[in-house]
Amino acid sequence: MTDDPHLTDPDYDRHGGFPDYERAEPGPGFGRFLTAMRRAQDLAVSADPDSDTWDRAADQVENLVALLDPFAAAEGVGPANRVPSLPGAGSLLMPPYTDVRLNPEGVDLTVRFSRFHVGGNSAVHGGVLPLLFDSVFGMVIHAVGRPISRTGFLHVDYRKVTPIDTDLTARGWMREAQGRKAFVNAELRDPDDNLLAEAHGLMIQLLAGQP
């Protein structure tokens, strides 16, 4: 774009209420909390204790909910998704990506899936990969200097089984830009450079005031 969008839309950066995800510094306790929660997610889908242990676990989780419930905050206020130094930027929703490397062409990052992400037979659930690729697409938009955009469509081709407990590399780049539209690509590879999955999609720049 050649014109400064702030001249016609003073609220451009928020687009009528889009959260401003400024970097958060919640302290080391939040990192410990996320690590424990990710392990708890793994155990929630893999543990097989006796009934009494499930009751005790439920008691502890309910106590945790009671502890945090008074501090519920609006989107963009809590530290989740605002701590780049933590896996998944500090969001349990995001696959635990790390080592994000932005460049003028796009982004590279490392991701390691765990038992929580299994769909069956120790393979990552197919529905998890679009979530990863959608996150990569957003990073590409930021890396290449495009305005805030939302996903218009996302298509995934699955080439090989995606393993858990393995450091994988995801890469994303912009293929073409046409006005408000940015056509983006991404791929996921294993340590032997085998292509596990690839995606292409459309990111559309938000209009003035559009959330």
Rank of each mutant, 00 (worst) to 15 (best):
V111W: 02
S114C: 00
I164P: 03
R115P: 03
A80Y: 03
L92Q: 07
N103Q: 11
P147Q: 03
A72W: 11
G138T: 07
P87Y: 09
E62H: 11
H142V: 14
L102T: 15
G78M: 03
F153Y: 14
Q60R: 13
V65S: 00
V156H: 00
T110N: 07
Y158K: 02
D69Q: 12
E75M: 13
V77D: 08
H125L: 04
P130Y: 08
D69M: 11
H117Q: 13
A143S: 15
T162I: 06
V156Q: 06
V83N: 12
G119Q: 03
V140Y: 10
T151L: 05
V111D: 01
L64W: 08
D59W: 00
V136I: 14
P95D: 09
F137D: 06
D157R: 13
L64H: 04
A89D: 15
H125R: 05
T151S: 12
T162C: 07
P79I: 08
L64A: 15
V77L: 01
P87Q: 04
H142R: 13
E75A: 14
P96A: 08
F113Q: 01
A123M: 15
V83A: 12
L102G: 05
A74W: 14
D69C: 00
Y158I: 01
S149K: 07
F116C: 02
L86P: 08
V100W: 13
G145T: 07
V61Y: 06
V124H: 08
A72F: 01
V124Y: 10
I164A: 03
A80L: 02
I148R: 14
E75G: 10
V128F: 08
G119T: 02
G126M: 05
Y97G: 01
F133P: 02
V61G: 01
F71Y: 12
V61R: 08
H142A: 13
N81T: 01
R146E: 12
F133K: 04
T110Q: 11
V111S: 03
L132F: 08
L93S: 15
P79D: 06
R56S: 12
P96D: 05
G145D: 10
R82S: 11
E105G: 14
D134G: 09
A80E: 14
A58F: 00
V61E: 04
V111E: 04
A58N: 00
L92M: 10
P79V: 07
G152H: 08
S114V: 04
H117D: 11
A74S: 15
A89P: 01
T162E: 02
V65C: 00
N103K: 12
G106K: 13
